[in-house]
């Protein structure tokens, strides 16, 4: 069953304040030349129905809570794929006053795709890697980095 499941990963993409370079490449990956729908991947855009959270950008402070909410809205099993150098600790934006130095302080990351900008081959490879990890995950609930009731309340998901 898990093998069948692995053929249908749906993607939500969230740009946490990057330079668009990665987003362009994601759009290109959807296009006819690379066509990631071959692997059953769809860009759903809706975290509630997605399995892979594809994050780009260095996580600006404004985007931090949005990223957390989007991640929380995804039902398990889910994987987070961090794409581009900025997500890996901030990249060129490391230690700027309005960035969080990468996403691993915010949500647990499963796959890192290096490069600025990663080549599309690398994106596809990273996504496939993510799918391999995702295949072995279970329904078991995952927790955010620094998960606590206080944090949940702060980002406004406890009571809407």
């Amino acid at each position: 069953m898990n093998d069948l499941r692995a053929k249908s990963p749906w993607i939500t993409h969230y740009n946490t304040g990057g330079c668009n370079g990665c987003d362009i490449e994601i759009l290109a990956a959807l296009g006819p030349k690379f066509d990631i729908e071959r692997f059953g991947m769809l860009n759903r855009g809706n975290p509630k129905q997605s399995d892979i959270l594809l994050v780009t950008g260095p996580v600006t402070l404004r985007c931090r809570d949005v990223l957390r909410r989007v991640w929380l809205e995804m039902p398990e099993p889910k994987v987070v794929v961090a794409m581009g150098s900025c997500t890996h600790g901030g990249g060129v934006f490391r230690h700027l006053y309005h960035t969080e130095n990468g996403i691993d302080g915010i949500v647990p990351v499963d796959v890192w795709i290096p490069g600025c900008t990663p080549r599309i081959e690398a994106i596809i490879d990273g996504l496939i890697e993510g799918v391999e990890i995702w295949k072995n995950k279970t329904k078991e609930k995952e927790y955010m980095v620094g998960h606590s009731e206080k944090l949940l309340e702060k980002i406004g998901v406890l009571n809407d």
């Binding site: 069953m1 898990n2 053929k7 990963p9 066509d35 071959r38 059953g40 039902p75």
Partner: peptide
């Protein structure tokens, strides 16, 4: 029609299996 290769024909059923195994929310 969009000059892509596209998913396998059985793709909806893969989606079906996938959705079945997700944590309900």
């Amino acid at each position: 029609m969009q000059s892509r290769q596209g998913p396998p024909v059985l793709q909806p059923f893969y989606d079906f299996v996938k959705l079945m195994q997700k944590r309900p929310m």
